[in-house]
Design a binder for these strands. Structure first.
Lengths: 215, 215
DNA sequence: TAGTGTGAACGCTTTCACAGCG
DNA sequence: CGCTGTGAAAGCGTTCACACTA
C-alpha cells in the first residue's frame, strides 16, 4: 500500500523489508570503490536473486542503465531518501536490563539517523545513572521526556509482563513506531507499527530444523 | 518440505515460524489454569487469526475436539516434541561484545532446552574470564570446545567483517544451526540453517513507515 | 451448538522469459 | 552485446465458507 510518491508504484511489504539491506550493501560497495552494480551482484551480496533486486528497485523508478547496471551513488541517495535515512529519528529504549544496556551501546544508535535520545526504567537503582552517555529516566517521565526529545521510535526491552503497559505509554506519548524485544505479541493499535524481534522463537525454529534432520 | 513424521503433512515454513509462539502462549494459558483453548483465543493471543491457527495445527494431526477446542496439555506436549523443546541443544556464542554479553545472560539460555555451553572471542582481555558462569575461550579453540560440549547451535555476535569466517569455523565444528546477529547476509552453505536477526534493518523499516506517513 | 478440519478462492511473492535500450 | 524493466506464470500463504462432529 505504501507509495514512494504520487507517480511511483506502491512498495510491497516484502520489498520494504529488503530495501535497508540494499542500502547497506551499496555502502560497502561504495567503500570498496565501485561506481556501478549489476542486479546480479547486488542479489548475491544481499542473499536474494537478480530478479528480486530488479523488481524491488523498479518500485523506486527507473534507476538503472541497461547494459551497465545501477549507479551506486544515485541508487544509494534514492534509497536513503525513501527509507528516511537522511532524517533523524530519535530513539528511546524502555527497560535497562542486559539487553537494553547492550542496545544503548549499539553502533547503529550513535549515527545521525537513529540518535539515542532517552532511556527509561522503573528500578530506582538505575534511574539517574547514565548509559552510553544518556541519563536513565523513570518510566513515569516517559511522556514528558519523549516529547521534549522528539522521540520517534520506541524500543521495548522489558520483561514480557510489562511490555503491553509500556506500549500503551509509548503510544500515549505520540510514538507510533515500536521495536519490541519482549517475548509477547503486543495488541495491535491503529496507526502504530510494531516490529518484533524474538530470539527465543528463532532458537526454536533452529531446533525444529535440527529435529527434522532425523537426528 | 519438513515433515513431522511419515503419516503427517509437511509443515510450511510460515507455520514453523509460528509454532514456537503457540508453545509460549500455551504455557501462559496453562499457568493461568486453563485446560482447553479455542482457535479463536489462541489466534488472538498470538497475534494471528483463528483460521491460521487451525491450518497450522492441522499439520500436526487432529489434536482438537470439535465443539470444545484444543486440550492445552496435549497440544503443548505435541508442539514441544516437534520443536525439539524436549531435548537439549547446547548453544555457543561467538563474540563477547555488548550483545554477546547480554545474550549470555538471556533467560532463554538458562533452561534445559538451550543450555549455554561455550563462549568465544579473540580479545585476550576477554578470554579466560567467565560470563554468566561460562568461561570465555579463544576462537581458535572453537572446534575442540564445541565438539566436547556437543554444541548444536551457534550464535554469531561479532562485527560484520568477522561473521563469514566465524560461520566457516562453526560449520567446520559440525554446527549446522546458526543465529546471526551480524549485519551481513552469510553465504548459504548446504545443510546449514541460518536465521538472521538484524536490528538495523528493523529500524529502517520503521523509519520507512514514518516517512510514508507523509511527514 | 460451538468450534474443528479443510477444500476452494483470493492475494501476495517469486520466478521466468524476453522485449527493449544503452 | 549486456543488463534493465516488466508482463505472464508459477508458487505460497492467508482468508473464506461450510461440512462435520463431539
Amino acid at each position: 500500500v505504501a507509495r514512494t510518491s504520487d507517480h511511483d508504484r506502491p512498495v510491497p511489504a516484502a520489498t520494504v523489508s529488503r530495501l535497508p539491506l540494499y542500502l547497506r550493501v551499496l555502502e560497502a560497495l561504495a567503500d570498496g570503490g565501485s561506481a556501478t552494480v549489476s542486479s546480479d551482484l547486488l542479489g548475491e551480496l544481499s542473499g536474494t536473486s537478480a530478479a528480486i533486486v530488479r523488481k524491488d528497485l523498479s518500485c523506486l523508478g527507473s534507476l538503472g542503465t541497461r547494459g551497465a547496471g545501477y549507479d551506486i551513488a544515485a541508487l544509494h541517495s534514492r534509497l536513503a531518501k525513501i527509507l528516511g535515512a537522511d532524517r533523524a529519528w530519535p530513539v528511546a529504549i524502555v527497560g535497562m536490563g542486559n539487553l537494553g544496556h547492550a542496545l544503548a551501546n549499539y553502533p547503529g544508535l550513535r549515527g545521525p539517523t537513529f540518535p539515542l535520545a532517552a532511556l527509561f526504567d522503573v528500578d530506582p537503582a538505575k534511574v539517574g545513572r547514565a548509559v552510553a552517555g544518556v541519563a536513565v529516566s523513570h518510566l513515569d517521565e516517559l511522556e514528558r521526556v519523549a516529547s521534549k526529545e522528539k522521540v520517534a521510535v520506541g524500543i521495548v526491552t522489558t520483561p514480557a509482563a510489562a511490555a503491553e503497559e509500556v506500549a500503551n505509554r509509548l503510544v500515549a506519548a505520540g510514538i507510533r513506531s515500536i521495536l519490541n524485544f519482549a517475548p509477547v505479541r503486543l495488541t495491535p493499535r491503529p496507526g502504530v507499527v510494531v516490529r518484533d524481534v524474538d530470539v527465543g522463537m528463532e532458537l526454536f525454529v533452529l531446533s525444529f530444523n535440527e529435529t527434522m534432520r532425523g537426528s
